[in-house]
Design a protein around this nucleic acid. Sequence first.
DNA 1: AAGTGGTCTAGACCACTTT
DNA 2: AAGTGGTCTAGACCACTTC
Lengths: 261, 261
Amino acid sequence: MARTGDRVRAVTAPAIGGPDFTLDRGSPVPLYYQLAQQLEAAIEHGVLAPGDLLGNEVDLSVRLGLSRPTVRQAIQSLVDKGLLVRRRGVGTQVVHSQVRRPLELSSLYDDLEAAGQEPSTRVVRNETVPAPADVAAALGIAEGGEVTVLERLRLTHGRPVALLCNYLPTGLLALDGARLESTGLYRLMRASGITLHSARQTVGARTAGREEAARLDEREGAALLTMRRTAYDDTGRPVEYGTHVYRASRYAFDFQLLVRG
Amino acid sequence: MARTGDRVRAVTAPAIGGPDFTLDRGSPVPLYYQLAQQLEAAIEHGVLAPGDLLGNEVDLSVRLGLSRPTVRQAIQSLVDKGLLVRRRGVGTQVVHSQVRRPLELSSLYDDLEAAGQEPSTRVVRNETVPAPADVAAALGIAEGGEVTVLERLRLTHGRPVALLCNYLPTGLLALDGARLESTGLYRLMRASGITLHSARQTVGARTAGREEAARLDEREGAALLTMRRTAYDDTGRPVEYGTHVYRASRYAFDFQLLVRG
DNA sequence: AAGTGGTCTAGACCACTTT
DNA sequence: AAGTGGTCTAGACCACTTC
């Protein structure tokens, strides 16, 4: 039986009824993951068109020289991503719409950068303070305990888009002012080995007060989008609490939801 | 070997090092799912506290009389929900925070009802019209093709909260006016066999115009929360497009995001 | 009746973490 | 060295859908 001992053996499935897949058993990348990536690429590039049937799992596993559970694991990961649909008695097909974008814990900086908006940041405040009640509750620490507060003005093309106020457990992270001006907070956290896992968000709206309007270069009474968020790492510990205010005239949240199975 | 043929056999695991689990092999509910439900309940009720180790998978499977893959499938489903964390070489633990709420494709009606807000609905418009360009694009039909347009005023405790305007492919669903006044659109769709799978949402804000303010019982210039959404069924076909407007003074979106693995 | 995915088993070897 | 989860195999029977 082929086991991990057989190094650098590559298997190419015949193209009968579908695209080619190449598996490398010598690679540290799991076989199910290699297959999932190639399936995703085939869908992405239109080799597998919306509505196409994948061919049954038993045949696929024989053709690929994999066991059925391994093939199923690959398929399942794409079903979870919403790229494939399984129907008992029918088969597995590529989903009909072009919906590709994942739901992600959005980083404003990354989002803006990806959209070609040339984001920049001005750090307004970066210090250690006693935790106010709401912050303490959100971060799960004692009221009055030390937290780091970070206030930033986010701009695109040199014009203000948002006022960001974040609280972090002190000592979690080195908040270097210069690096904060050149990148986003989440990227900094990831670089420090913090794996973000989930976040709870509340999105609302209100009108701008006078001082706020001035800082954001808006008229008084302009519509603002507000966001309050607590983010958790992969062990479920709160690592960040923030209240953000966006100029509604220049920003809207855009995201995709998946219904849980 | 115990197979599905053995009816109504129940297995109770000894409580050594953990809570009891009872599996019914005669039930049509899959074993991994029964286990997952009981694990989730144990976490929910505090029998398993945050940070608790679950015990290794091999022992668990022996205790429960299940194979390891089956136990893993149960655990994996809770990891996906964000309730458990696995660490190689360490074990599986209950997540540290109390984050429980799932991310879901939110139904305004259900959300309000769950919050004890006594929602009600007034159907303002329910007819078939030629599709405007944006609607046609969102629903993937020809511009000017037939669509059903549905306009509703949503109230809580008898006071307006939101103006809902939805477009659906004509013939997808019987939109009975009376039922629309007593329940939500998504519940009606689910009852018609439509399985919602994902949605793309854009959330923004603006100030209220005169007529709009009057309909929502707000002042002119009040902050409004806006939402535009396209929902897809499990085959990826668009089944609904809507533009909603909420009174920011009475409503905010509240949801949880999970980072994709 | 034939074909599909859904579930389940009883093993195996591996990589990683902790002791 | 010992213990954990991560991956993988080669089967099996079942429920559902379609013909």
